[in-house]
């Protein structure tokens, strides 16, 4: 056998190293970590907008060092003394706080956006799936009242699986509670901009996320009321991938604009110019 027909030795593919590569949660493409961070955690292959922590969101959105938290001390409680198969809600929530450093599923505060004073409420999906419960509702209310008092545009970033079952009916009551303060903002003509990020579903989509003066969505975000599985069971049909995406909601008239993450700050700034009296 001559050397010239010798088959090439298979070269072992280099394993992607975790410290320099990131795998896109959506399309599974491998992307350089530096690039991923520089692109604000947006996949350049498939345009998937990765879920952000509240801090990452605020850093992208507000002018450096301008953010001041409102109602930071409000934290979850356990009104029902709820326990399920896996144990008590109190310990689950405490464990979540330990992991995330968060007191609740939302962080509220005030800051400057290109110099404009705004009130913001940013949900963080890491805390019990961004679920809406007493603490979330109270922080939302206080932030809304702050916006009302100081006539600051109120910008809310939603990221939530819906109402938190562990606080039962009290969680459901946060839907009218948050909408009640938004009714006051409307009456006072204080702008309220709702930004829906992945995912905005259940009780959050059916309350404050859907009553904005302007509805913005991040590309490809999941937005909807009922869960896909429940709907498929109801209609006995498979749903297309495009169902309940930001693009689907835009096409059906429930979202004003889809805004890429890198353009979010500038877009909000441009919009607010038209919403001041």
């Amino acid at each position: 056998m001559g050397w010239f027909i010798k088959k090439q030795q298979p070269v072992a593919k280099p394993e992607p190293r975790e410290d320099i590569w990131i795998q896109c949660p959506s399309c599974k493409a491998h992307i350089f970590k530096d690039e991923w961070e520089k692109d604000l955690k947006v996949c350049k292959e498939c345009n998937y907008h990765e879920r952000l922590t509240w801090k990452e969101r605020v850093d992208i959105l507000l002018d450096p060092k301008s953010f001041k938290e409102i109602a930071s001390r409000i934290s979850f409680n356990d009104p029902l003394k709820f326990s399920d198969a896996k144990g008590s809600y109190a310990s689950k929530a405490a464990e979540n706080r330990g992991k995330t450093g968060l007191n609740e599923s939302i962080v509220t505060g005030t800051g400057k956006l290109h110099g404009v004073r705004v009130t913001v409420a940013v949900m963080d999906f890491r805390f019990l799936g961004g679920s809406l419960a007493s603490g979330t509702g109270e922080k939302f209310l206080q932030a809304g009242m702050f916006a009302l008092k100081h006539k600051q545009p109120f910008i809310v970033f939603s990221a939530s699986g819906g109402a938190r079952m562990h606080e039962g009916i009290i969680s459901l009551m946060q839907m009218p509670k948050t909408c009640a303060v938004l009714a006051r903002l409307r009456e006072a003509k204080v702008p309220y901009i709702s930004v829906m990020t992945d995912p905005t579903t259940g009780g959050v989509s059916a309350s404050y996320a859907m009553v904005g003066d302007i509805h913005i969505a991040e590309p490809r975000a999941l937005i909807g009321f009922a869960g896909r599985r429940v709907i498929e069971e109801t209609i006995k049909q498979k749903l297309p991938d495009s169902f309940q995406t930001a693009e689907y909601l835009l096409a059906h008239g429930f979202v004003d604009i889809i805004v890429a993450r890198k353009d979010m700050k500038d877009t909000l700034h441009r919009l607010m110019k038209y919403c001041s009296r």
């Binding site: 059916a206 996320a209 009321f225 109801t234 309940q244 059906h252």
Partner: peptide, 17 residues
């Protein structure tokens, strides 16, 4: 509320909100 595809399409969440 009805969890159907048509209900989603017509904005179940928005209607309740």
């Amino acid at each position: 509320a009805f969890p159907g595809a048509d209900a989603e399409e017509r904005g179940q969440a928005e209607a309740i909100a």
